[in-house]
């Protein structure tokens, strides 16, 4: 191989695109020619330099492209599914020259649609007066309620339906409107899960009068023990509040769930802390000592509390 040939093949050699014989000849020449070695070094250098100038495509652009493609494909699929009927109606799918067949089929489809609508009307399935929604969805008990029914005097009936419209509201539990909604949910929701979540979200708002009242109400009256427990947790910081203490005493005496009663005594008389016990509360604790079984946690805690007060179970 001559120097000229070697110089022409520098890049192809670097790319590994020379055939075996030419590659051998190139390497042989290079090993014996200092000038071509320098030219080869320069060739390698600009290849490297070019690579170092190369930019990567940024990830944001890639993500945008993928998203665009997803949207375009979804659109295409939609169009495809809609156009199957159109394709079916294409002339190429019909016997050549039989336009009358097409006409007959089109007439049949029109007739079919007409008959179906008449049948639905007679069967009472057609929509009437609900602006496009089906009767079944209007009467979904989860979203609608019949408020009034009036005969229209022509063997018909006029029904007034209240519909629930879904709406999303976001905000901090500290906002008045959000807080009021959460309080309403805790008091009125039929779903105990919603009531538990409301109590949890209101935990840091228990300093507000309406929230504390709602929590106290839940502790006394909510039929679900999990809701009562959650409400009790939210009231933990207010164990010295008279209304809260009354409620806790009520729970200790009347709640039928041992977990709720245990939580109540722990809030009322936290272990290792000074306890402010009024005579009324002491009487309550004594009555619990008498009514609870020997090994009951609540009974034992009541006993501890009374002993810390230096009052025996029989003092009061």
């Amino acid at each position: 191989m001559t120097c000229r040939e070697a110089r022409l093949n520098l890049s192809l050699y670097l790319y590994g695109e020379l055939d075996f014989a030419r590659e051998e000849a190139f390497e042989q020449h290079l090993s014996s020619c200092a000038l071509c070695q320098r030219a080869f070094a320069r060739e390698k250098a600009w290849h490297t330099s070019l690579n170092s100038e190369r930019r990567d495509v940024d990830v944001d652009l890639l993500m945008e492209c993928r998203q665009d493609l997803r949207v375009a494909l979804a659109q295409r699929k939609k169009e495809r599914s809609l156009s199957w009927l159109m394709r079916w109606m294409e002339p190429s799918r019909w016997p050549a020259g039989r336009w009358s067949v097409r006409l007959a089929l089109a007439s049949f489809l029109v007739f079919l649609g007409f008959s179906a609508s008449r049948w639905m009307e007679r069967a009472g399935l057609a929509e009437s007066g609900f602006g496009g929604g089906s009767l079944m969805s209007v009467l979904n008990p989860a979203t609608a309620r019949v408020r009034d029914i009036q005969p229209d005097g022509q063997n018909g009936v006029r029904i007034i339906v209240d519909q629930v419209k879904e709406r999303e509201i976001t905000g901090s539990p500290e906002d008045d409107s959000i807080r009021r909604l959460l309080v309403a949910a805790m008091n009125e929701s039929l779903d105990p899960g919603i009531r538990v979540d409301s109590a949890e979200m209101l935990r840091n708002q228990a300093g507000e009068r309406d929230v504390r009242d709602a929590l106290l109400n839940s502790v006394r009256k909510d039929p679900n023990a999990a809701v009562r427990l959650k409400a009790l947790e939210a009231l933990r910081r207010f164990s010295s509040d008279p209304a809260t203490r009354d409620t806790l005493a009520f729970v200790l005496q009347h709640d039928d769930n041992p977990g709720v009663r245990s939580e109540a005594i722990d809030i009322l008389a936290p272990a290792g802390q000074k306890i402010d016990i009024t005579p009324d509360l002491a009487l309550t604790l004594q009555s619990i000592l008498r009514s609870e079984p020997e090994d009951d946690y609540v009974r034992n805690r009541c006993l501890q509390v009374l002993q810390r007060m230096n009052a025996s179970g029989d003092v009061y």
Partner: peptide, 20 residues
């Protein structure tokens, strides 16, 4: 394709030769 590459590398070599 090889001819195209050959021409492209020649132009690139001529342009970047001073920098390396």
């Amino acid at each position: 394709a090889k001819n195209c590459l050959f021409r492209a590398t020649q132009k690139m070599r001529a342009a970047l030769g001073d920098f390396v």
